[in-house]
Design a protein around this nucleic acid. Structure first.
Lengths: 339, 339
DNA sequence: GTGAAAGCGCTAACAC
DNA sequence: GTGTTAGCGCTTTCAC
């Protein structure tokens, strides 16, 4: 532990025999041709020799820019979030930005807390997977002029920028597909929530049932709280499948729900797709390795992450207003679980 | 977009009619009882009214501390990494720290790059899953007096602090278990690497074979490069299982390898555990949902993340030297794939 | 008990 | 072409 002396701008200036201003100009490639070529070269040379590393904190304080973005997801441990995080990381790095992340656990309080903490740390902007009841928090960001873009979740009738998928269409397609395979009693397992993207999935599900002239029975929908566990989902599976008139197909509203649901189905020795066909949202390796490869709605994560990050950074760097509101198409990947 | 005026210390001072120094003292609870109770209360009241949010960047510059730690993993999109990230995030938040992350993709250059970027951003310390050939980079951190702790991977014969598992023991246990179930030709699929933790797994595998009086045949070990794909692993599976004298059990050295391997095994219509028993490192939901629940070596991720973070933060806050070198025990979770 | 002022490391307006 | 210097928003020494 011998903290080697940090090299400062001043050290270089001293060494070369010029002012710190000149050094700053040269190293930032400013006033390009107004500076003596020799001095400039000398400065660059010494900077390299001394292995000068600019203190970004000082720079940030001066410039009022940290080149850092805050990423708020529901839970970084969930593959859906972490895959997005990776894409955002890469996209940000390309442009010289780093990312600080935080998990909200679907709680407004935690989300608000994260926003505050990250704002205090002066992040230049946010990418947020908004939680239920967080409209006010987001609105506040907006009125305070903090740049952000929402991902995955968003608010209808609000001008906030977002990039998400067409959840209505995706659910509709999935249900139509099941209907096309002759399924008559298609169940839905989803969250009991006011989150718009999930409501859209339910709406798509309903619309497809109607369109296909299928029974739209309340008993075919099972909703669990957003922080529910294996047990709660298992109960839903029981309710939908262990009756005298069970569902012959099931649509899961998220990867976590599917995970719990599949476990339950297997534990109950119910066969997929013979006894019940299955389709689910999101993509995970698990779906492909399950004993029956699963039919799933594949969200274009790369596209979501890229568009969100690009737009945000463009806004930050070119001071353009953030207006994008994108609903990308999700692809239905058909496998054996729904055949 | 009407950037509301940021409230500064000065604003509070002005409002209350005191100096910024006093405000700072009060809000940081310093000089507790040397300050007039009334003024103090007034200051706190006004600060709340104005919703004062201290600028952490300014604070950081002054204090030479950012209360930020850098987390470098192989790939944040990999569940192993993201689960650790979540634990570290929580542990850090408890103590008022935030975390910036980066993915190295198992490349020294990227890792070195990340270290530089994060150092420039003045992170107070690092938690790093070191990549191959990164010993020099780590040594440099050490000589520069930058606090860090390694996770998962580490260097033998180096005094660097780390928390990892007993890879030798874990592999030994796994192989012994297979031998105990009557397996005679136990194969290993792992990476061709100099990473110590993986060498340890191989060593444990070998030692167990010897101990159990089993064949230690080079042909039973298949190594792929660390950036290898589904195809490379499939080839390994072919080599080990599609011969006249195939392996009757397989140990996978990581979750990614297992993922690829299981896909290959399924595609080749080889039955687990009838034709080949399987054990793998790491834990994922997939293992439980696979058509045969998988026997796996469960790393104590929570413990790893917690100990690493706690030690690092303790060092940062109490300026204690970082000396922990911990090898935790991994648990073998026995399921049907090895019965 | 309280305040003036220096300074963390950098940038950029302005002067020469 | 190059240097002086004022701050970015905060903490803290030292003086009163």
């Amino acid at each position: 532990m011998k903290p080697k002396k940090k090299i400062l701008l001043k050290d270089i200036a001293l060494e070369v025999g010029v002012s710190t201003a000149l050094v700053s100009y040269v190293l930032n490639n400013q006033k390009e041709n107004r500076i003596g070529k020799e001095v400039a070269d000398k400065i660059r040379k010494v900077a390299k020799e001394l292995n000068y590393q600019p203190n970004q904190i000082a720079k940030s304080l001066k410039m009022q820019k940290t080149h850092t973005i805050g990423l708020i997801v529901a839970d970084i441990a969930n593959p859906f979030s972490s895959q997005l995080a990776r894409i955002i990381e890469d996209e940000a790095k390309k442009k010289g930005y780093t990312v600080i992340f935080g998990s909200s656990d679907e709680k407004v309080d935690k989300m608000q807390d994260l926003i505050n903490v990250l704002l205090n740390r002066q992040v230049d902007g946010f990418i947020i997977a908004a939680v239920e009841q967080s409209e006010v928090a987001i609105e506040q960001l907006d009125t305070n002029g903090v740049p952000f873009v929402l991902i995955d979740r968003y608010f209808p009738n609000q001008p906030f920028p977002y990039v998400a998928i067409d959840n209505y269409g995706a659910a509709f397609t999935a249900v139509s597909h099941l209907a096309g395979r002759g399924k008559k009693k298609i169940g839905l397992i989803t969250y009991e929530t006011s989150l718009f993207h999930l409501l859209e999935r339910k709406r798509g599900y309903r619309a497809a049932l109607l369109y296909e002239n299928l029974e739209d029975d309340k008993h075919l929908v099972h909703e669990v709280t957003i922080d529910s566990t294996q047990q709660d989902v298992k109960q839903g599976i029981r309710r939908l499948l262990l009756t005298e008139n069970p569902a012959d197909a099931l649509l899961f509203g998220s990867n976590t729900l599917a995970m719990y649901g599949l476990k339950a189905i297997r534990d109950l020795n119910i066969l997929i797709p013979e006894q019940v066909a299955v389709v689910t949202f999101d993509e995970t390796d698990t779906y492909n390795l399950f004993y029956v490869p699963l039919t799933y709605i594949k969200q274009p994560l790369a596209e979501i992450g890229k568009q969100a990050t690009e737009a945000l950074l463009k806004c930050l760097q070119e001071h353009q207003p953030l207006t994008l509101q994108v609903n990308l198409n999700a692809e239905l990947v058909v496998q054996k679980s729904s055949m």
